[in-house]
Design a protein around this nucleic acid. Structure first.
Lengths: 339, 339
DNA sequence: AACGCTAATCTAAACGTTTCGATCGTGTCA
DNA sequence: TGACACGATCGAAACGTTTAGATTAGCGTT
């Protein structure tokens, strides 16, 4: 900018005024300045601007895994929304690791991001401290965090799983295997509650041997399914509480020589684009990823627009059960359905 | 830092020296400073540091679509690599749009990213200008760009498609539909060349009616497949040059009342994690995403480490044909294979 | 005692912006 | 004609660091 000012024989203040439109500058000076800018190929240095202005027009976004299709889609929507609003997005993947997450959030705050979207991981204690000491708005995505009182967008996980399990029960299934991630994040907790609630509502027992806890990855789903299928009295249906793990489930079913849905019914959380073109077409709980991403972005953009003092807003969206052909009717119900 | 200095009754220079370890500071001052840092909860401001140092320890990454599984995986690997190296990653999605891409790259450069990874879009002319005027290292990913002489990581696309088409020919297919994206990016150009080469090597004609150009999206694959399947003499196999479009292909086959591989064989570019658990198990060209991501990151990290003057390095990796069950033998070959 | 050397610390300029308040013509009005 | 307001422009401080060079104190040598 200094060079531009010299070349145009004006002060840097005038150049700044012209660029930002913060004051009127006469036609002739405007022209000289614009010419100089073109000649020199001047680009405003956003870092210096950020330092002075105290705002970077950048937000931080941390998710556990971008390869989980749910997060892929949500990240994509959020990215688009902020792109439209003229913000850049710094993306971090925590790999479901608490320390990584803390480091990354600190890194983002050091870089003076204007806001933060966090799909948190693990215990919320450290997160709580970080969020409170950071004086930027924070939106929690997908996973609530007890004690952290800030804007939140989550799914009604309990209800969604309740619907899915009830569907299986209505098909005649009585022993339903359930594969979950660890309970330190709210969705896993709430989904489990939905499973329990559905069984209890149908007067069925909740049996510990039918519940397996994994670590969110395909291999965990594989191992859990292997265990479920080698039970003395094996389940007739399996529900997987996340998407990567259901791939493991399908592989285990294949490797053990069974087939879905003939021998075992399968349903899972989170839809994916090709779920209705390949066989079996998986019955899934579909999250409204577009809405989730947009609402999350809007909450943060609203705070960034200056609405700092409004009380925390908690949005809860509804999932949708996408019934396809990976679950078959059983016993008496099978008769009546096929009749 | 000023407050810390005051609280510890030292100068800011001493605080800086301690934090960065750039000069020895006596034990007692060290202790006073550390205490003050803890009391105040001081965090170094990375923006001010960037301004002074001329480096942000941030890189920019632009890809067309993060929802394309190939890019999802590659972005994930790149993100991890830079995370390990202490760099933040700014992610942009260009949505295959040239203007969006230019805006985003300019945005990234304004923010003084230390380096850039670009999976480019459209004509390379503007990109060329930008890359040359930016004085940061740039690595081109997945798509080369004529006239832009910089580090590059690409797949041997021609060879990969040659192998896939040759495989189909060996199965007895003679009329092979080919669905491609627009030719303004090198992979589509090279893949098409592979298709041509394979047909010619087998003495088969390249028929225009069998080649359909789409815009990379599922819907384009759907429309293209519909057209191919309604040809007077319809192809016995279809190859889709990218992953999202093959979903459209499968949907079209289903909607038209045919089935794969009984009525029509299908293969495509880019693997996905569940390709071998659902039916039909798609035969695909698998890219070494881990290696691609790592090599790309390494090239850039090497430049960032100071190796600026080495001549541009062009890496070409090999794809791998993953033969599954979505393509069936035809005619005489079918006899001999099934015999 | 004077000197030089080293280690520790400090002062102040610089990075590239924004912005407050000052300055300087010019035209308007009493 | 003098006072005044106004519009255009500028000077300089500030944002929070890093760092070159100055300063100071302590200590061993001669």
């Amino acid at each position: 900018m200094l060079h531009v000012a010299e070349a145009a024989r004006v002060s840097v203040a005038t150049v700044s005024a012209l660029i930002n439109g913060t004051a009127t500058v006469s036609p002739e000076l405007s022209q000289r300045i614009e010419q100089a800018i073109r000649d020199i190929g001047y680009k405003r240095n956003a870092i210096a601007r950020s330092l002075k202005m105290g705002t970077t027009r950048t937000i931080g976004l941390t998710v556990p895994h971008i390869t989980n299709p749910f997060f892929t889609d949500v990240v994509s929507v959020i990215q688009q929304a902020f792109d439209r609003a003229g913000y850049a997005v710094m993306l971090c993947c925590t790999d479901e690791d608490l320390n990584t997450q803390d480091d990354q959030i600190r890194l983002l705050l050091d870089r003076m991001v204007d806001g933060l979207i966090v799909a948190r991981v693990g215990d919320g204690a450290i997160l709580k401290g970080i969020v409170e000491s950071a004086n930027v708005p924070v939106v929690l995505l997908d996973r609530v965090c007890e004690g952290v009182d800030t804007d939140t967008v989550v799914l009604d996980n309990q209800r969604a799983v309740f619907d899915a399990i009830t569907y299986l029960i209505d098909l005649g299934h009585r022993r339903i295997g359930y594969i979950t991630g660890t309970f330190d994040i709210s969705p896993m907790h709430d989904r489990m509650a939905g499973y329990r609630e559905a069984l209890q509502a149908a007067g069925l027992p909740v049996e510990n041997e039918l519940v397996r806890v994994g670590n969110f990855h395909e291999v965990d789903g594989y191992n859990a399914t292997m265990q479920l299928l080698s039970l003395h009295d094996r389940p007739s249906a399996i529900f997987s509480a996340n998407n990567p793990m259901v791939i493991g489930t399908m592989k285990a079913i294949r490797d053990i020589g069974l087939s879905c849905p003939q021998d075992i019914s399968v349903a899972c959380f989170d839809d994916f684009p090709w779920s209705d073109v390949f066989q079996p077409q998986l019955t899934t709980v579909s999250q409204p990823v577009q809405a989730i991403g947009e609402q999350t972005a809007n909450l943060l953009l609203d705070r960034l627009a200056g609405n700092r003092d409004a009380p925390p807003r908690k949005l809860m969206l509804k999932g949708r059960l996408m019934i396809r052909n990976s679950c078959r009717p059983l016993g008496a119900v099978a008769q009546s359905v096929s009749a």
